[in-house]
Computed example of a mutant assay.
Amino acid sequence: MPFFIRLIIKTIHWLNEPKRMQVAQSIIGFIFKRSGKTFNRTVNNIQQAMPDSVHQQAEQLAIKSYQQIAYGVLEMFWLNELAVEVVCSSEVSEIIHQQRGAVIATLHMNCYDVVPLAVQKISGRSTTLSKIPQFYPQAIQIYQDVGIRCINKSDKNVIFQLVSEAKNGQLVSLHADHYATDVAIEFFNRATRAASGVALISAMAQVPLLLGYAVKQGEGKYQVILEVLQAQPLARDISQIEQAIKQMYQRFEKIILQYPEQWYWSYNRWR
């Protein structure tokens, strides 16, 4: 890991939480406003999704959401210090306490690893997928320190590893709100395409499909909401898998509109 990155992370971590957030977000906001293409795409995405917002409002939301996400990425480095409250239905609780495996679709909100962290705290059976940087292979230790089983996205046969984990009773958290070419959907009234991975793994492993998202509540505090998308495992049928993805994205829209400043708007999701 480059020395200057380690130094920045350590310096910020030494500060107390309010000061840490203030310093980090000031730096992040300054850089983001000068990022050109990324900044413009973020503002455009917001205006396309929320056409009633004026340009200035979209710019303010773009900056705030980017600051929130970038600070959440930093929080991964002190994951074991975060306070997490889990809210879930009796149906979700039953799935977990019956020791059943499940796949959990998550969104790019706040600190991306808070959902698998929350799942580990309530079940002890959390698995996630993460792209471990080649320049910092020690990053996998961050997950291991809090008990999360992490599969490196760069590994071979990742899909089969995830299916095996779910079959063996693990609760597998996967980000599901990014662009991919698998399934044609509508997202904020615009045609795009989405990944089918979460539904496909549910079908292959024959486990329920859940949804999980994290809402920042304050300094180092998160609330994680777990919901049921499909209580019964999906059939290995392309039409059922596609329908599940479309329904999932309808729920994503409602969550994002409820917490627009906590979702990552910068991806090129509409192509």
Rank of each mutant, 00 (worst) to 15 (best):
F4P: 02
I8D: 04
K10N: 07
I12A: 07
W14Y: 08
N16E: 07
E17M: 07
P18W: 10
K19Y: 06
M21C: 04
M21R: 05
A24F: 02
S26Y: 01
S26T: 12
S26N: 10
F30Y: 12
K33Y: 00
K33V: 00
S35L: 09
G36N: 14
G36Y: 14
K37D: 13
T38V: 11
F39P: 10
N40T: 14
N40A: 12
R41G: 02
V43L: 06
I46W: 06
Q47N: 03
Q48M: 09
A49V: 08
A49Y: 09
P51E: 14
D52W: 13
V54Y: 00
H55V: 11
Q57Y: 05
Q60M: 04
I63T: 11
Q67W: 02
I69C: 05
A70W: 02
M76C: 03
W78R: 08
L79E: 06
A83L: 09
C88D: 08
I95M: 09
I95G: 06
I96T: 05
Q98C: 10
R100H: 15
G101A: 13
A102N: 02
V103K: 04
I104A: 08
A105C: 10
T106L: 04
H108M: 05
M109R: 13
C111E: 10
V115L: 08
V115I: 12
P116F: 06
P116R: 02
P116H: 08
I122S: 11
I122A: 11
G124P: 14
S126V: 15
L129F: 11
S130W: 15
I132P: 07
I132F: 13
I132L: 11
P133G: 05
P133S: 02
F135Y: 13
P137W: 09
Q138Y: 08
A139T: 03
I142D: 00
D145R: 14
G147R: 08
I148S: 01
R149G: 01
R149K: 13
C150W: 13
K153W: 11
D155N: 14
D155K: 14
D155C: 10
K156T: 15
I159K: 14
Q161W: 03
Q161K: 14
L162I: 00
V163I: 14
E165M: 07
E165P: 03
K167H: 11
G169D: 09
L171R: 05
H175S: 06
D182I: 14
V183K: 01
F187S: 07
R190E: 04
A194Y: 09
A194I: 07
S196R: 15
S196P: 00
G197M: 12
V198M: 03
A199M: 08
I201E: 10
S202H: 03
S202L: 07
P208E: 10
L209R: 05
L209C: 01
L211S: 12
V215Q: 12
Q217N: 02
E219F: 15
E219R: 00
Y222F: 14
Y222L: 04
Q223P: 00
V228P: 01
L229W: 12
Q230I: 00
Q232G: 00
P233R: 15
P233L: 15
P233Q: 14
L234K: 10
R236L: 05
I238R: 12
I238S: 07
Q240S: 14
I241K: 02
I241Y: 08
Q247P: 01
Q250W: 01
E253D: 06
I256A: 01
Q258S: 09
P260N: 15
Q262D: 10
Y264G: 08
Y264I: 01
Y267P: 03
